[in-house]
Design a protein around this nucleic acid. Sequence first.
DNA 1: AATGAATGAGGGTTCATTCAT
DNA 2: GATGAATGAACCCTCATTCAT
Lengths: 235, 235, 235, 235
Amino acid sequence: MSSLSQLIGAKAKAKEPPPAKRERRKEARPRELLDAALELFVEKGFAATRSEEVAARAGVSKGTLFLYFPTKEELFKAVVRENISGRFAEWNDEFQTFEGSTADMVRYCMKVWWERLGATPASGITKLIISEARNFPELAAFYQNEVIKPGQELIRRILQRGVDRGEFHVIDIEYARFSITAPMLFLVMMKHSLGACLPQDYPLDPQRYLSSQIETLLHGLCVRPDPAQKGQGSQ
Amino acid sequence: MSSLSQLIGAKAKAKEPPPAKRERRKEARPRELLDAALELFVEKGFAATRSEEVAARAGVSKGTLFLYFPTKEELFKAVVRENISGRFAEWNDEFQTFEGSTADMVRYCMKVWWERLGATPASGITKLIISEARNFPELAAFYQNEVIKPGQELIRRILQRGVDRGEFHVIDIEYARFSITAPMLFLVMMKHSLGACLPQDYPLDPQRYLSSQIETLLHGLCVRPDPAQKGQGSQ
Amino acid sequence: MSSLSQLIGAKAKAKEPPPAKRERRKEARPRELLDAALELFVEKGFAATRSEEVAARAGVSKGTLFLYFPTKEELFKAVVRENISGRFAEWNDEFQTFEGSTADMVRYCMKVWWERLGATPASGITKLIISEARNFPELAAFYQNEVIKPGQELIRRILQRGVDRGEFHVIDIEYARFSITAPMLFLVMMKHSLGACLPQDYPLDPQRYLSSQIETLLHGLCVRPDPAQKGQGSQ
Amino acid sequence: MSSLSQLIGAKAKAKEPPPAKRERRKEARPRELLDAALELFVEKGFAATRSEEVAARAGVSKGTLFLYFPTKEELFKAVVRENISGRFAEWNDEFQTFEGSTADMVRYCMKVWWERLGATPASGITKLIISEARNFPELAAFYQNEVIKPGQELIRRILQRGVDRGEFHVIDIEYARFSITAPMLFLVMMKHSLGACLPQDYPLDPQRYLSSQIETLLHGLCVRPDPAQKGQGSQ
DNA sequence: AATGAATGAGGGTTCATTCAT
DNA sequence: GATGAATGAACCCTCATTCAT
């Protein structure tokens, strides 16, 4: 866990130490443009962001932007794609070998998510997708496949582990997994939307928020859970 | 009616039961325009929605729109304000006199929210605010004061009641209240954003979703809560 | 001269005591509309004046205006036509029988012009024509025929009288007549243009201005006119 | 060249001696746009002139206009400011050292004005100001300060010189100075307004007109000035 | 005749995109 | 490759004009 902590926050800068010449396509295309575009799209939305502004923030001229991205839409798509790291495979491995209680696994999952994604500019992608999904259905699908599905799969496996080991009494995992997703979404929305423009009436400490949510999630609000009520709902 | 995909888009159809020829007068127009604008703003965002489109969806010409709202921005503000009826006072009364367990109160709270807000087009306002908050800080502040604050206050009181009556072992209400907000936000985002444009891989039944979240919230995931672990978290 | 003075200023109101049923065309059409339009056209110009504003100032609704004038252009033309009184015939008679020095005739001419036209709202027509002549050439021609020509003819005759009676040593009447026109134009421009929107640095008393111009015109600036220089110019 | 009708419209022709392909760069554009705008504003007025027309006459597209002037109103202001070069200082010097009779000074003053301003397109500014003063009070004030005041000051000094040297018997310079202004105004109005759209009934030669006015101004109409009548006027 | 809600062509302005340098 | 002047389609908004009442 401590070695992981050291990796934290190193993402936004040195992302690909050796470009690896994977496809060599546009690995050289100014990362600055994508970073500038991400910031602005998150801040103002796709339609309200002017191309020239993106170029200016990246320190190049308007024409240069179109040298790398044929249209503003392509730029947007590239921003989304580039910031969606397919890192879940790697995480899967980490969690595959996780030892300890599943409760700790949930805690660790949140922590890792916050440190590697939530706290970085890449978290703005979520707000972007939320805002523009219906204007860019293909991107929404892409995000669904690249981020949501693997993420949910990971969460599903964690919950299943809890159930299998008798630690959790989850009934329907397909719904319960959102108990982990929702706080993440909430936090990101606070960071990039309302929370970014309002005088903070109440300071919201992300890590404390997440911890608090997890503990409530794990142990519930009720002092003495009454199994008889489980699943009845309020209908 | 039970799956989310069915909830979406089942509204643009039956619009004018009997158009009544041209009986609809000045007093009906604003509402029609606001409804059309809400739909489009939620769907495409403020900047990407054209004024003429709003007018067309309301069945009037471009010029008519500006007879009622001097600018597109004022239309936007009116959309937000109009769809935020100060219903919290009335709700407060309902909850003031609530009898029964606080767990039931939480269940009832969610149910009422879904029926009166979540399931209506007004829920799109949340997505709208999330998407445009940084471009319209005044509106964000307005929403904060008119919706978030009263809502949070209501939730806070419910939680406090649970604690006071020894039903809940809440530690920090200022964070715990988001355990109720987050699922609401999540559901609304699904309804108006990603969920509205993706082929529903899995049907998400809102009421079942909410019930599930509430029960998990109330009773926790862990089979046997271990008080010793409470508060340790992953810090 | 005194009976004439009594007639002064009675124009703008009771214009046609008995409508005479001359052509009966639109004698009944609200004079208020034309008056309102004159004011506004003079104030803001033809293009910048909105039809609705004219109607409002006349105390009727937008639709009513178009009941009387099919287009804004026709309204403009009507304003010009209605305010160009063909009163020169009547003036001609007055001047035909004038007895006294031609210098006094010039003085009287100016005085009458100021009192019957210059000081009334009708003087705004001149500014209107000046501003819009090139957009309404037919109106310019109309004005030329109805106002300028008869006016110049009147002035021409006065000057000719002075020359014939040995009172003036005019050489070229075709140019000299503008010596009378120019001060009129100047005064009207001051009244309706610059003078109407600037803090008057210097108060310009119209009657004093006209007197002063006439005396200079009659007697010249030079203390001792040197006939030898006359007509040499500065070439 | 001698008749007014020939002076008008003899300008829109020889526009681009050698268009030089596309050598004309950013520095030439503003001047071209301002010239085009001056022509059109004078011809049709501010409100009736379309931005695209200005651009077209300058040989550029609509968008280019807004590269140089943020709004049509700013374009208008720039037109007025640009065409008012503070040439009065230089003229002041010329007149400071003038030797000869003050009558000759007046003749020279008119001649210089015509050659350097009256005959140039810049004279259209006067019609423009007259027409738009009440819609642009700040511009009217600007024109008042930059053009009228210095000009009047110059004229005032000339008249004062004549009085001081015993050449003129001016009584009230504050009124007499308009005897010089009025013919200028008249000529410019003829050139840019009525005279520009009417079939010239009579050719008006500007220089001859000015000479004629000056001589009348200097020596008066009356053959034998009767000092006893001076100042009586028609009051 | 009078009203004023409704219309839609027109014009000011923006901005993604192009292209000559 | 980089630039930024130029373009013109598109959009917000105005307002002369129409027409049902």
